[in-house]
């Protein structure tokens, strides 16, 4: 099953490679990974999307917690959460495609953030599924380039991940 893990870790050189190294050394999957500093500059927050059986996810969580620089790990799947990912997608926008692309971007609540005579670059935010759905919905042939951030996640309501 797909799980979203939120990890609070020391904002130190090498901490990221320890996390990534752990996944490759123990043959765990990383579907996506995002990381950046938090409001507290000494801490980074990472979101890892992974999949595996319950036993594997339990081991991943335990192994992550074992890393000295990891302060806290939570599995967002354990309760209500919000997930967002951003995608920038550059599409061919000529002839009849130009109107169609604008329409599709609107339907998916995307924004066209760069325009040339032949292309649009659309910014789209949502769950990873939604971004996938957008790609499915448009004609493959018009896609020139995509770049996705990978999912970030946060618990709903008053639940917070803090030290």
């Amino acid at each position: 099953m797909r799980h979203i893990l939120s990890i609070l870790l020391e904002n130190e050189a090498g901490a990221l490679s320890r996390v990534v190294g752990l996944f490759s050394a123990r043959a765990y999957n990383i579907d996506s990974l995002t990381v950046s500093t938090t409001e507290d500059p000494t801490l980074s927050r990472m979101t890892i999307v992974t999949h595996g059986s319950d036993e594997v996810i339990e081991q991943i969580t335990k192994q992550l917690n074992k890393l000295i620089e990891v302060v806290k790990v939570i599995d967002l799947n354990e309760s209500e959460h919000i997930e967002r990912e951003m995608m920038l997608i550059k599409v061919r926008a000529t002839g009849k495609d130009r109107e169609e692309m604008k329409r599709m971007a609107d339907i998916f609540r995307g924004r066209i953030i760069d325009v040339t005579e032949k292309t649009y670059t659309i910014e789209l935010t949502g769950t990873s599924d939604k971004l996938g759905a957008f790609i499915e919905a448009i004609d493959r042939a018009v896609i020139l380039e995509t770049v996705r951030t990978g999912a970030s996640g946060i618990g709903r309501g008053e639940r917070v991940l803090k030290i």
Binding site: E55, E58, Q59, K66
Partner: peptide, 11 residues
């Protein structure tokens, strides 16, 4: 002492 040793190979 190490939680990751527990239920690793055997539940």
């Amino acid at each position: 002492v190490d939680p990751s040793s527990i239920s690793k190979r055997v539940k």
